[in-house]
Amino acid sequence: MNISETQAGSITIVAITGTLDASTTKELLKSPAISNPAQSVVMDLEHLDFLDSSGLGALIGTLRKKRERSAETLISCMNDRVRRVFEITNAHRIFHIFDDTAAAVDYATQLTARI
């Protein structure tokens, strides 16, 4: 798995490439934008090939911690395989999901400006 962080105004875009499963979640949770609960992020999943329940658990934990600090975790560009995991677990009910990273950044910027 490869994680890259890019700043877009007050929002950090966290792009994940490869696999997010039990063996790689620790690495994700250590990345600066994820470990800072006050930082709103857009998780760009365009190049995420595989997600299992451990990886999903890490994303949900991130969402919860950030919402406790009035920050957001938005999801963008998930493929059908990742979307299937979100749908079975009903995770799509708690995340805002976009098909475009720039649109997610705009939405996150509006949300954080409101707070």
């Binding site: 329940s53 658990g57 890490a58 934990g61 969402l63 919860r64 079975i88 009910r93």
Partner: peptide, 12 residues
Amino acid sequence: IESYPERGYGLL
């Protein structure tokens, strides 16, 4: 899901 659990999805 509404209570944001981080575990327990595997069997589902």
